[in-house]
């Protein structure tokens, strides 16, 4: 096995507020290997989004070490090591879908020809071919979120960080997008870190499930999924799936009672 993509050791992050310190993360140890699909699950306030932001270099830990691709998160951010998908699609309303996907490519200085090639490629990848010239308001919420995933994929970073990307969508759309995301993961071989508060979503998608609990934000369980990488939707009725889901639920409940 090659070096881990993300390695965190005794990671802590404390926000100083007027009401005293808030321990968003405390003594977090985590390893994410290349090609993993890691989900962070836990109740709100457990620090799952904060952890993702620390990996992205958007927040800085107050103690402990973290490396991304062997670099500090800030250095990794400067090398554009990851694509980040936010809770809301956050497309620029004044840019077309193609224009939005082009945004990171323009900033990173890709040639015009390559920009267009990449836009076509990633829009096909998220099943949005033909919507290049549409504006965001002309698309449904699920399609907008797919466009934002395409935007994160456009510059071909090895890591994809996703912060509850389907949290605001209804369940039918979410199931569909989960399936598509697995296809995408299989075809691009990316390492994905995924924040969610849905147990079925976490179990269905992940090779590794990190269960977190709040006050202070910490990891209460790490589950390596026994499920195969090929996952049809009906795998959710299998015995293994239900067992993993049960263990996640137990982990969440335990974290809650002593929290």
């Amino acid at each position: 096995m090659s070096d881990p993509v993300v390695q965190a050791t005794n990671l802590s992050l404390t926000f100083e507020t007027n009401d005293g310190p808030v321990h968003a993360l405390k003594d977090v140890n985590l390893t994410i290997d290349k090609g993993d699909f890691v989900s962070f699950i836990g109740p709100s306030g457990c620090g799952k989004t904060t952890l993702l932001r620390v990996i992205a270099g958007l927040e800085h830990p107050t103690a402990g070490d973290i490396s991304v691709n062997g670099l500090s998160p800030d250095e990794a951010r400067r090398t554009r090591a990851y694509g980040y998908v936010f809770q809301a699609a956050g497309l620029y309303p004044w840019r077309t879908i193609a224009g939005n996907v082009k945004l990171p490519l323009e900033i990173m200085g890709f040639s015009k020809v390559e920009q267009n090639e990449r836009v076509t490629k990633v829009l096909e990848l998220v099943d949005l071919a033909g919507f290049e010239k549409k504006f965001p308001w002309q698309l449904s919420g699920g399609m907008q979120q797919r466009a934002s995933i395409a935007r994160a994929l456009a510059f071909d970073a090895d890591i994809l960080l996703m912060d509850e990307p389907f949290g605001a969508l209804d369940e039918i759309v979410r199931d569909h997008l989960n399936e598509q995301l697995l296809d995408l993961w299989a075809s691009t071989q990316k390492t994905i870190a995924f924040v969610t508060h849905s147990i079925p979503e976490a179990v269905y998608l992940s090779t590794k499930i990190v269960v977190m609990s709040p006050r202070p934000g910490r990891i209460s369980d790490v589950i390596d999924s026994p499920l195969p990488r090929e996952r049809p939707l009906n795998i959710r009725d299998s015995k293994e799936f239900i067992e993993v889901a049960h263990r996640v639920r137990e982990g969440l409940r335990a974290g809650h009672s002593d929290g």
Binding site: R80, G90, W94, L103, I107
Partner: peptide, 27 residues
């Protein structure tokens, strides 16, 4: 904050953030 964070994940410079995000958003 989210839109500004997005620009940070691209490691966009201040002028790039101005021309591509702030200025069009201000129209």
């Amino acid at each position: 904050a989210m839109q500004l964070d997005l620009m940070r994940t691209y490691h966009a410079s201040q002028p790039e953030t101005f021309w591509k995000l702030r200025l069009p958003a201000s129209m």
